[in-house]
Each structure stands twice: as C-alpha cells, then as structure tokens.
C-alpha cells in the first residue's frame, strides 16, 4: 500500500501566539517582581489626585483614593494568577483522584462516581463555587477552593475517558505481559499517557479560573479590599462607572486580554500535542 507523501508546512509561530506569549510573560513578571514594572505602592493614597483620567503620570488613571490604577493592576497580578494556577491545580488533583478511581476501580465504583459527577456537572461551576463560599466565607484560600472544586467535575470526566481509552492500548497489555505489576503499569504507562493531552486543557483552565475568580471578587465574594485582585478592582470601580470609566474598563480589558492569551496558548499547545478528547 503506497502512502501519499505530503510535505509539511514549516511551523512559524503565529502573530497571535507571539502576542499571547508577551502578555503572559508580562503578567508572570508582574506576579513575581511587581517592583520591576512599577515604582510606587499599590496602596499609596494621594488625596490630591483622586479619580484622575489616564495620563502619562497615571497610564490607567487613579481611583477615588488617588491610588495609581496601573500600579494596583500590576500588584494584583500575583493574586489573580495565583488563584488561576491554584484553582486549576486543585481541580486537577481532585479530578485525577476521581477520574482514575472511576476508570480503574470496577463497575460499581465507576457507576457511583460517574453519577455524582453528572449531578455536579448539571450545576453551573460558578454555582458550586458560591456554595463553597457560602460555607467558608470569602478569602483568597476560599476563592481557590471554590473555583477549583467548581471546575473539577469537568476535568474528572475527561480524565476518566482518557484512562479508559489508554487502558485499551496495546502497550498496556504488552507491559503486563512482560510481568510488570499493575501499579507499575499505571505509574509508568497509564498515568503519563492519559494525562499528556490534558496539559493543554489545564492551560485553558488557568485562563478560565482567572475569569471566574474575578467574577467572584466582583460579586464581593472573593478577595476583600484593599487587595488589588482584578475582580476586586472591578468591584471597587463599580460605584464610579458613570464618571470614571477607566476604573471599570481598564482592569476589565486586562482580565479579558490575559484570559484570551492563556486560552490561545492552550489551544496552540493542544494542536501541537495532537489534541485532547473534548
């Protein structure tokens, strides 16, 4: 049987990918060393210059306490990104536990976990998150827990499907036929191969978690002021939206830009890795 030889196009990174990388690099830098990007303190009050529109001195303008909004956005990156990463990590820990148990622990356990996941899946993730906050009260840790638990069921279902698919693979049987124990086979073959396509999904999840965390803060259910977490900034700016648009629009643009960038990188990664089951 002859095969068609199709020449492969040379992969030049797309403009969008490059821009996304720049945005993400900026946010990571802001989270790690905010002092490198801005001079002042995010909480430095200057009552002489409250609610000033964007200018060279204050690129994002100032808020009702005269705090520089750009400085606050840069300093808020650590919390926003931290919630995004933390929540995704938590979601995956839960999802890996549930997904692998469901796929490997036999029919009864599988049926039980799958039913629970279906019920959880029927709730919007944000609603699940609200439930966690209702129980624990708003804080940074609760935000992470809320968003993490809220997004776990979706990942758990994906992981279960991946494990079931990889379990059928020839190399799993081949490893068992060599005399490897079941635990070794899971650790060496099943886990890495089932999780590989989910790397991209996890990246997508970070962007989504940042948006959700912001939504919670906006509702006053996330991180409390004077924190400059991006959702909290939106919440604070809400009162002045008719007079000082920048307090609402500019942090909003930042959130959207970061979410789009992370998601776009996730997609690129997904295509490179050959795609995940969705």
């Amino acid at each position: 049987m002859s095969t068609l030889t199709v020449t492969r196009a040379v992969h030049l990174p797309k403009v969008g990918t490059v821009l996304s990388l720049l945005v993400v690099a900026f946010v990571v830098a802001a989270a790690l060393v905010p002092g490198l990007l801005v001079d002042g303190s995010p909480t430095a009050i200057d009552l002489k210059s409250t609610l000033e529109a964007p200018s060279w001195a204050h690129p994002f303008g100032t808020d009702d306490a005269g705090r520089d909004l750009f400085t606050r956005v840069v300093h808020g990156a650590r919390e926003s990104l931290g919630i995004g990463l933390g929540a995704t990590a938590l979601a995956f820990v839960i999802a890996i536990g549930l997904g692998f148990t469901a796929a490997l622990a036999g029919r009864v356990v599988d049926a039980a976990i799958t039913r629970v996941l279906e019920v959880a899946f029927a709730f919007p993730a944000l609603l699940l998150a609200l439930l966690v906050i209702a129980v624990r009260g708003p804080s940074l840790a609760t935000s992470i827990a809320a968003v993490g638990i809220g997004s776990a069921p979706g990942y758990a279902r994906m992981i279960r499907g991946q494990v079931l698919a990889v379990r059928q693979a020839g190399f799993i049987e081949a490893a068992a036929a060599l005399g490897h124990g079941w635990f070794t086979v899971i650790r060496r073959h099943l886990f890495p191969n089932a999780m590989r396509p989910l790397v991209a999904v996890a990246t997508l999840g970070v962007g989504q978690s940042i948006v959700w965390a912001s939504a919670l803060s906006f509702l006053g259910l996330g991180v409390a002021p004077p924190s400059s977490e991006w959702g909290a900034l939106l919440d604070a700016g809400r009162l002045h939206i008719t007079t000082s648009w920048w307090l609402e629009i500019l942090p909003g643009v930042v959130i959207v830009l970061v979410a789009i960038s992370v998601t776009s990188l996730g997609r690129t990664l997904q295509n490179r890795l050959g795609g995940a089951a969705r």
């Binding site: 020839g170 190399f171 060599l178 005399g179 060496r188």
Partner: peptide, 26 residues
C-alpha cells in the same frame, strides 16, 4: 493467581501484529 504468575511471565514472550501500538509512544 495474578501475583504468583507474574514472576513466571519472563518465560513467555509476545510479538504483536502492530508493534507500534505495543510501544509506549513516549
């Protein structure tokens, strides 16, 4: 039992039709 058979597995090898799928792709 699976556990008692495992040490004996070295005595029986296998070659499949599709070798590629029998190798871990990584």
């Amino acid at each position: 039992s699976t556990d008692r058979r495992r040490p004996l597995r070295k005595q029986v090898g296998v070659v499949y039709q599709d070798p590629l799928s029998s190798f871990d792709p990584r």
